[in-house]
Simulated scan of single mutants.
Amino acid sequence: MESFPRNSRVAVVTGAGKKRVGQVVARALAERGYALALHYRESRRDAEAFRDECAAAGITTELFQADLADTSSVDRMFDQILDRFGRIDVLVTAAAIWIPTPLESLKADDVIRHFQVNAMGTFWCCYRAGLAMINQREGGVIITIGDWAVKRPYLNYAAYFLSKGCIPTLTRTLAVELAHRNPAVRVNCILPGPVMMPENLAEHERIEAIKSTLLKREGRPEHVAAAVLFLIDNDYVTGISLPVEGGRLLS
């Protein structure tokens, strides 16, 4: 494996295996000159295809597998990332699970699994990256991905919204904790709206989601990526949750 220049910038993106928001964010960071440490859980083939695409464009890219529900797996991943790159400048937590389940069918294990991945998994990734960043003179930037609809949850996603509701709180908490140790470390959250709706979503639900925005159009993952870049660039913003949802909260 070729050596990596220790003064180069490194971005870690979780949930970058599948062709969803994480990959779009990673591509935007690569265009800014970041080397990429990309996390995946099961989508190895898709992750390898994306890595090869990045490598063909001259972007230093490494893949790291982990189950975010298992803190020891997360620890192993971050140990590997730091061993390979020596630093972390940006972390974007795009990994999440969302499994629609009617309330009457919900099991305790369903709720626990969502919390393990979406809440604890996100926190432990931020924790490990934050501990690395506070020891860097330049600090670093952590950007969590929440969900606008924690303020207006919809049916059949009780476990998901319970777990995602933790993200703004852990963002504010870590903004305080990490800045206390190194004021150059910032932590912010993005709350996406309908920027990449599930492929299996019923057409009437997709239309309703679009109609419920003020802008009357579907967003794109690139809108989230643009918000990530804004939160990296503006070094006087920390501890916020930024909605990227076309005005859906107001409509």
Rank of each mutant, 00 (worst) to 15 (best):
L201H: 12
I240W: 04
I99Q: 15
P153K: 09
F161L: 13
D70H: 07
F78M: 04
V13Y: 10
R137H: 12
S212Y: 03
N188V: 01
Q65M: 12
I59E: 10
G86S: 03
A66S: 11
F85E: 06
A159R: 07
A159F: 10
R9D: 11
R87F: 02
A129F: 02
D67K: 03
P221G: 11
A69D: 05
C126F: 02
S212P: 00
H39R: 05
R41T: 08
L63M: 08
A108S: 08
L155V: 03
K216Y: 11
R172A: 03
E2Q: 13
F161P: 12
R128W: 06
L249F: 13
P243D: 01
R51A: 11
R248A: 07
I190R: 09
E31V: 00
A49H: 09
R217Y: 11
A94F: 03
A69R: 13
E2N: 12
I112E: 13
W98P: 00
I143C: 07
L249R: 09
S241E: 06
A69V: 06
D75K: 12
M120K: 07
A179K: 08
I207E: 15
R41Y: 15
E218S: 07
C189H: 05
G121K: 04
D46H: 12
A55T: 07
L178N: 05
I210E: 15
G58R: 08
E199P: 02
I190K: 09
P168G: 05
A225W: 01
M1N: 11
L103S: 10
L131E: 13
R32F: 04
D109R: 11
E138L: 08
E53L: 10
L29R: 07
D233H: 05
R137V: 12
V111F: 14
A184I: 00
L214H: 09
E53N: 08
L131Q: 13
A209K: 12
S3W: 09
V74I: 14
E205I: 00
L91A: 03
N135A: 06
D79Q: 13
L170P: 05
R172M: 06
L68P: 00
M133V: 02
H180Y: 10
F123G: 04
V21R: 02
I240L: 04
R41A: 05
E208I: 00
E222I: 01
V141W: 10
R51E: 15
A56I: 02
S72I: 01
V224W: 08
Q80F: 05
E2D: 14
L91Q: 06
Y34C: 01
Q80V: 00
A66W: 12
P168E: 08
E53Q: 13
G130R: 02
A57M: 14
A184S: 11
S241Y: 08
N118V: 01
R32H: 10
Q65T: 09
A47T: 04
F115M: 11
F161D: 14
R20M: 04
I99Y: 15
A149C: 04
T60N: 11
W148H: 14
A225K: 01
D67H: 09
R152W: 12
P102G: 05
M120G: 00
P194T: 00
P168L: 08
Y236A: 01
H114A: 06
A95I: 05
